[in-house]
Amino acid sequence: MFAVEARGLTKRFGEFTAVDHIDLLVESGRIFGLLGPNGAGKTTTIRMITGLLKPTEGYVRVYGMDVLKNRRSVLRMIGYMPQRSSLYDDLTVEENLYLYTMLYDFSRQEAKRRTEELLKEFFLDKFRDRLVGNLSGGMKRRLALAITLVHDPKLLILDEPTVGVDPPLRRQFWERFRQLVSKGKTILVTTHYMDEAENCDEIALISHGRMIASGTPEAIKRRAFGGELIEVLLDREPPCDPPEFAKIISVNGRKVRLLVDDYGGRSAQLMDFLRERGFKILEMRPVRVSLEDAFIRLMGERS
């Protein structure tokens, strides 16, 4: 069973189609990243998955249950962190946490205990009596994440959790995501930071409301370029014709970038090919393609 199963998800606002027939399958126990530039339709997709927005077409199931029809049971399985800060600014850190524990039907005593637990776990203990309106952005995000965990949900849906968060805290967040997944939780996270997305087990790229690609980050990169890139530094200017299994992507003096279907298999072949032609290979390495490169290329292909 999938943690999230969305089929043909579509949302139209009047003439405008914000999300256009997106299928998403999130396997349990993974970090699934929904990736795309601002305005791509990430938040609309997320809101449909949480059941906060009714899709124009399509349906969403969370652990096999329809999010609209089985609302109550679904809500208990989801921990949701909206993109916009949605904490009560005029309540203190502790009051916010306590409110949410109470809303999830904890008894007064249990709620107190759970609140304490989360305050400690998220290092918010010292700021417990501070009004949320007076917290820094990073602390607000930390509290928001703590709130999503109040009822120990199986599925975390986090909409841009690291926006406005400084790099050290961002790293902490991702470490925590990994930790949560190792404890059996599933995370569906949106981001427009491509470097973050590399940490996902699986990603879906969306742009203008459509799904462009999905799979593991490596698979997506491979698909974007139709293979892997090798960079070779030679002792002299290269010849014009490449071997039939490689394609020249760029030549920069004695530095050549070639595209092959598989780095492991083809690198030896390429070495042989070059030696036969009397080249000396000074250096040879796989090129680390960033997701950003892949994304830009994939976007380019479509338009």
Binding site: R72, L75, Y80, P82, R84, S86, Y100, L103, I147
Partner: peptide
């Protein structure tokens, strides 16, 4: 925006 979180509880 507080409603968005509030109504995700039961």
């Amino acid at each position: 925006g507080t409603f968005e979180q509030f109504i995700m509880t039961p």
